[in-house]
Deep mutational scan, measured.
Amino acid sequence: MFYPNSPQTSPQLTQIPYGQQYAMMQRQIQQPYHPFATTEPQARLYPYHYQGPIQQEQGGFITQQSTAASPQYVQMRVTPVDQSIMSGYPNQTANGSSSSSFNYNIHPQQQQQQQQQQQQLRHHAMPVGSVPLQDDRYRKQLIVNYLAPDVTSTDLHELFSRFGELDGARIIYDKQTNMSKGYGFVYFCHAEDAKEAVERMSGYEFHGKWLKVGYSTNPLNIVPSNSSPYVHAGSRGAAG
């Protein structure tokens, strides 16, 4: 039997160049792979992502010199942007860049009308829970959420009447099932009393439920100042 490094198959040491006398086997001759043993700084910083320098080929596509990437890492192929796409944008300079302001050559009167329309939209648009300043009635009506099913309009009136005089209180019921929808409205005579009720009743436990109280901004629920107070009856038909 002959071994790869046996004296019968191995040459004389004098015939082997210096430095390879003890590297006779194939696994010894093959050098191990060192990912950080390279002179390129990109490979030292990113050993798993770097795959060699990027070269520009004919046709405008950018390719990489090395083989496919590892399945664990996804390499994105980048193509140059066609400058003709950006030619339609206004205020574009000769080098292809555009300024931040756009001039669509709008007539001054049209621009003024658009600004007025935007101001009107901001004036009428009102986020949930906010209180408008032009109508004091919005500051007097509250919406009470997360009410228990057994709470009546009379219970709601008695709960909030300790903060001040009320114009009314009612629970909203479903017309088909005649069941409470879980929320109601309270109408105060003074805005200061309503503000105190919002601050003190939010998070209050009532009939096993934690109440959420806020201003009601729905104009359909506003009680006119010259109208008669609501009837605080315990029956659902009268309260709904």
Rank of each mutant, 00 (worst) to 15 (best):
Asn5Glu: 06
Asn5Val: 04
Asn5Ala: 07
Ser6Leu: 06
Pro7Trp: 04
Gln8Lys: 15
Ser10Asn: 08
Pro11Arg: 14
Pro11His: 07
Gln15Met: 03
Ile16Val: 11
Tyr18Ser: 08
Gly19Thr: 09
Gly19Phe: 03
Gln20Pro: 12
Tyr22Leu: 05
Ala23Val: 03
Ala23Lys: 15
Gln26Met: 03
Gln28Thr: 07
Ile29Trp: 15
Gln30Gly: 09
Gln30Trp: 02
Gln31Lys: 15
Gln31Ala: 10
Phe36Gly: 10
Ala37Pro: 13
Pro41Lys: 15
Pro41Arg: 14
Pro41Ile: 04
Gln42His: 10
Gln42Gly: 13
Ala43Glu: 12
Ala43Thr: 13
Pro47Trp: 00
Pro47Ser: 05
Tyr48His: 15
Tyr48Gly: 15
Gln51Asn: 10
Pro53Thr: 10
Ile54Ala: 11
Gln55Thr: 10
Gly59Asn: 11
Gly60Phe: 03
Phe61Asp: 12
Ile62Met: 06
Thr63Glu: 08
Gln64Ala: 08
Gln64Leu: 02
Ser66Gln: 09
Ser66Arg: 14
Ala68Cys: 08
Pro71Arg: 14
Gln72Ala: 12
Gln72Gly: 09
Tyr73Ile: 08
Val78Thr: 14
Thr79Asp: 09
Val81Ser: 10
Gln83His: 09
Ser84Tyr: 04
Met86Thr: 11
Ser87Gly: 09
Tyr89Pro: 12
Tyr89Asp: 04
Thr93Gly: 11
Ala94Arg: 11
Ala94Ile: 09
Ala94Thr: 10
Ala94Pro: 09
Asn95Ile: 10
Asn95Arg: 12
Gly96Cys: 11
Ser97Thr: 10
Ser97Ala: 06
Ser98Cys: 04
Ser98Phe: 12
Ser99Phe: 05
Ser99Val: 10
Ser100Leu: 09
Ser101His: 08
Ser101Ile: 06
Phe102Gly: 12
Asn103Arg: 15
Tyr104Lys: 12
Ile106Ser: 06
Ile106Ala: 09
His107Ser: 07
His107Leu: 07
His107Glu: 07
Pro108Ser: 11
Pro108Asp: 06
Gln109Pro: 07
Gln109Glu: 04
Gln109Gly: 09
Gln110Glu: 04
Gln110Leu: 09
Gln111Asp: 12
Gln113Leu: 11
Gln114Leu: 09
Gln115Phe: 13
Gln115His: 10
Gln116Glu: 11
Gln116His: 12
Gln116Cys: 10
Gln117Ser: 05
Gln119Asn: 10
Gln119Glu: 06
Gln120Tyr: 10
Leu121Ile: 09
Leu121Asp: 05
Arg122Leu: 04
His124Leu: 09
Met126Tyr: 10
Met126Gln: 11
Val128Phe: 13
Val131Gly: 12
Pro132Leu: 11
Leu133Asp: 08
Asp135His: 06
Asp135Leu: 05
Asp136Met: 12
Arg137Glu: 01
Tyr138Pro: 02
Tyr138Trp: 10
Gln141Ser: 00
Leu142Cys: 14
Val144Ser: 00
Val144Glu: 00
Asn145Phe: 01
Pro149Asn: 02
Ser153Thr: 03
Thr154Tyr: 02
Leu156Ile: 12
His157Tyr: 15
His157Asp: 07
Leu159Ala: 03
Leu159Ser: 00
Phe160Met: 05
Arg162Thr: 11
Arg162Asp: 03
Arg162Glu: 05
Arg162Lys: 07
Arg162Met: 14
Phe163Ser: 02
Gly164Met: 01
Glu165Gly: 14
Glu165Met: 14
Gly168Lys: 00
Gly168Leu: 00
Arg170Met: 00
Tyr173Pro: 02
Asp174Ala: 09
Asp174Glu: 06
Lys175Asp: 00
Lys175Val: 05
Thr177Arg: 04
Asn178Asp: 07
Met179Trp: 15
Met179Gln: 13
Ser180Asp: 01
Ser180Tyr: 00
Ser180Cys: 03
Lys181Asp: 00
Gly182Lys: 02
Tyr183Cys: 01
Gly184Trp: 00
Phe185Lys: 02
Phe185Met: 01
Val186Gln: 01
Phe188His: 01
Cys189Trp: 13
Cys189Val: 02
His190Asp: 11
Ala191Gln: 07
Asp193Gln: 13
Ala194Lys: 00
Lys195Ser: 13
Lys195Met: 12
Lys195Thr: 12
Lys195Glu: 11
Glu196Asn: 07
Ala197Ile: 00
Arg200Tyr: 03
Arg200Ile: 09
Ser202Pro: 07
Gly203His: 03
Gly203Phe: 04
Gly203Pro: 02
Tyr204Thr: 13
Glu205Thr: 14
Glu205Met: 15
His207Lys: 11
His207Pro: 00
His207Gly: 07
Gly208His: 15
Gly208Cys: 14
Trp210Ala: 02
Leu211Gly: 01
Leu211Gln: 00
Lys212Ile: 02
Lys212Pro: 00
Lys212Leu: 02
Gly214Cys: 05
Ser216Trp: 00
Asn218Ala: 02
Asn221Ile: 13
Val223Asn: 03
Val223Trp: 02
Pro224Ile: 05
Ser227Glu: 05
Pro229Asn: 09
Tyr230Asn: 05
Val231Glu: 09
Ala233Ile: 05
Gly234Leu: 13
Ser235Leu: 14
Arg236Asp: 03
Arg236Gly: 04
Gly237Thr: 11
Ala239Leu: 05
Ala239Cys: 05
Ala239Asp: 05
Gly240Glu: 03
Gly240His: 13
Gly240Met: 04
Gly240Ile: 05
